[in-house]
Design a protein around this nucleic acid. Sequence first.
DNA 1: CGATTATATGCCAATATCGGCATATGTCAA
DNA 2: TTGACATATGCCGATATTGGCATATAATCG
Lengths: 118, 118
Amino acid sequence: MARAATTTDAFNAVAEPRRRQILDLLSRGERPVNDLVALLGLPQPLVSKHLRVLRQVGLVAVRDVGRQRVYSLNGEPLKPIHDWVKAYEESWSRRFDRLDVVLEVLQSKEDSHGSDSD
Amino acid sequence: MARAATTTDAFNAVAEPRRRQILDLLSRGERPVNDLVALLGLPQPLVSKHLRVLRQVGLVAVRDVGRQRVYSLNGEPLKPIHDWVKAYEESWSRRFDRLDVVLEVLQSKEDSHGSDSD
DNA sequence: CGATTATATGCCAATATCGGCATATGTCAA
DNA sequence: TTGACATATGCCGATATTGGCATATAATCG
């Protein structure tokens, strides 16, 4: 085995920061590839490759306009991510409701287990 | 280069479904490793390895209790994920506000570009 | 047709993963 | 001390990634 393919999931596809950047740009409106290339300052083949991954998980759609390919956002595959993290929202916003847990965290940081930093 | 380390980010750490499962279990309360092993039905070394990754990105904390190591959830590193996806929430909940985009998606699916299924 | 523009693909190197299995480390009990 | 229990680590194989560079494919223009 190995790590799951980046095209398995939105989870996996979006773990790559550049792909998140691309989505962020597209959220402002559709763009042809070369626009993205210019905005990102990355080599064109690399951008095309990232777009391919995003296409395969359905996060972007393409449309042909002359010799350009215009990419647009399709956020729906992000919903599972949203749904999943949303359940944890309280764990940081109301995190002092469970002081015991906080204390445990602090305690384990002071303890002697190689300080779990690795 | 290669793919970013799983320990780089919460984004990367959480791309692995088993690690999400572990967090889901811990969200119900802290647990020693063997509890998780039993609940997940996975080999113990594998669980320990996943826990290590989660520890390295700060998603879990450990506490020693006798010869057991009790793991607990720390959701805070998930906040960046939440913040990021949240911005896209409208793109699926209000997705018919931009009918043009929807039409483009449909159109590109009918078009002849190898149907972007790959 | 040939040239140019726009984008996608192919191949390569380097890397780090996940899972399997064996084993090290650590802790408590007799 | 010896042993049993709980957990972590080490090494291995197989795989797939990201980025680089060259090149293929596609479409438009003269």
